[in-house]
Design a protein around this nucleic acid. Structure first.
Lengths: 337, 337
DNA sequence: TTGTAGGCGTTATCAA
DNA sequence: TTGATAACGCCTACAA
């Protein structure tokens, strides 16, 4: 058990060089010795040692994926896309849950660096200067998913949040809604928060509709609980709205659950549209109309970009990808027309 | 960038042995040289190479986690517990989505073996003989979560499915329900399927209630869609039931959604209890009463067991853990009393 | 307290 | 077609 190339060589009566050649199917050995060696490998149950290989080849066939939170289905659908594509190409992925904690993130980056991963994918995380420093020192490809850095030139794969939020709001307006609240998630988040609010505003403008700032609810996160609180607030303030645009499916779900408790019928009395199209959206009752991000595909694309960069040796740059979003119509939006 | 211990040694005017000693804080160097070396490390931005270390120490500080499917929130809550504990102890985790595919699983096992991971955790997966062979050849600790092997002596952390299903059914009966259907998931699954049916039966027996086999619906999976189909079947067969016990939260959610479409009020006209207590349960509307598995903790415990085994060198055995389950009462069960 | 040298399991460059 | 042998970056006796 755990025999080495040396054992194989001895057993097959050849040199380790020959074994190595056969293992990596290079040229330079006869069919006869190949058979001998293969049999020895078989009999010993020999498995090449990836550590030794990596040490000399300077490549580990593994990548690291940083993920901020677990609470949301969201990250894991992306992760699953990454994992799929990586595995198909013979790479393993190390998951790193940063828990939105800077120290933990830096620690993880350090670990990935020591383990000499071949690349790093960062899921919806803001890139701090300290991260970027470590990242550049590592000199491996990095790509962002569902995130973007304005400070640093890191390629990304994401939907256009502003545009997607515009689409969602526009959709509601075209259904006849004019009094639309927005449950905005974290409004100070420059990546997933602000642009969506802009999109919400822009849609109003494009239809010549005014925007009432009171209608924009700031929760500091994108969670179910935050959605509940936001809905409470809307009710308490007695905002006169016929529809809600929520910045995430979880927020929408939270809002729906308090609406249900208060006896507000969705979509009869109140329409709601979410954002993400996680599995949750289709499991909610009624099922949630939402603007879909192609989460799984984003993972695939990010991985594709990463390996592209690795191939070309272009560690610094590649073409970022704006992924298509679309409205998935289900049961939570009623037409007023 | 990517300097070696040699560079550090040269820069600090000492031998690599000394640097190594300081790095691993062993004994045998003066404070003065320590400072010199530390500065050199700092200036060079030196990072130890985990590959080289692993090669010589025969340990990689990484473990592998096999997960069957992504569709369910379930696995990821467990994963997240594992990841947390592993990271706290300085280990990384490689995620392996086996997609319930034997070939893929074997391939992954091979990869983990070549990468010389220090241990493997397998989440709710049936252990085939081929897996076990590779596993034993690897000679590293293995633990099962939310699974068990009757054929092979692998320690596990799981709830007692039979008991948990008993509790769920018993709970319904004590609320006055006597006509209870079971949406059983995969009934030919000896781990998560059968025992739960037994529990369902046992609860009936213990109350002197008869079991109608027609009331046990076999779907072949534990997914949302399967839950919908099962509910359709219940309705179509016009089963005369007042409550349903579903073998997973997703199944319950699926059932609830078709009930909603058919205008059946939950819990007024029909009670339902789920199984797992994933995040989904609390987000459903109405929120789902369910029997909780401590998913996150199961991950933690599994990791704990794994590292225990590694410490003691007892690769073959450790005490398995039966995790406590409990009923989480929410809004989907109505008392008939 | 410090340094030399051998070895961990590979691959790759020479000669043969 | 083959086989020594020097790396890869580190740890660890053993000497000094």
């Amino acid at each position: 058990m755990n025999s080495t190339i040396k054992d194989v060589a001895r057993k097959a009566n050849v040199s380790i060089a020959t074994v190595s050649r056969i293992l990596n199917n290079k040229t330079g050995f006869s069919e006869k010795t190949k058979i001998k060696v293969l049999r020895a490998i078989e009999e010993l149950g020999y498995q090449p040692n990836a550590l030794a290989r990596g040490l000399i080849n300077k490549n580990t066939q593994t990548i690291g994926v940083l993920i901020p939170t677990v609470s949301n289905m969201f990250s894991y659908e992306i992760l699953s896309g990454i994992e799929k594509h990586a595995n198909d190409l013979g790479y393993s992925v190390i998951v790193c849950n940063t828990a939105d904690d800077g120290e933990r993130t830096i620690n993880y980056l350090q670990v990935l660096s020591e383990k000499r991963v071949d690349g790093i994918i960062i899921v919806s995380e803001f890139i701090r200067e300290e991260y970027y420093k470590i990242l550049t020192d590592m000199n491996v490809p990095v790509v962002l998913v569902s995130s973007i850095s304005f400070q640093f030139p890191i390629p990304y794969a994401k939907v256009d949040d502003r545009h997607a939020a515009f689409s969602a709001t526009d959709y509601l307006i075209k259904k006849g809604h004019t009094k639309i609240a927005m449950i905005a998630g974290n409004t100070s988040d420059p990546i997933a928060g602000l642009p969506r609010i802009e999109g919400y505003r822009a849609a109003h403008h494009s239809h010549g509709l005014p925007v009432n700032d009171d209608f924009i609810i700031d929760c500091r996160t994108f969670t179910h609980t935050a959605g509940m609180e936001a809905m409470e607030e809307i009710l308490q303030k007695k905002l006169d709205v016929t529809a809600i645009f929520a910045s995430s499916d979880e927020l929408a779900a939270g809002a729906m659950s308090v609406a249900y408790r208060k006896g507000i019928k969705i979509p009869d009395q109140l329409s709601i549209i979410g954002y993400d199209n996680t599995k949750l959206a289709e499991m909610l009752i009624p099922s949630l109309t939402t603007v879909a991000q192609p989460l799984y595909d984003m993972g695939i694309v990010a991985a594709t970009m990463l390996f592209e960069m690795k191939e070309t040796g272009e560690v610094t740059q590649t073409q970022s990808r704006i992924m298509n979003h679309c409205i998935v119509e289900r049961e939570t939006v009623r037409s007023l027309l």
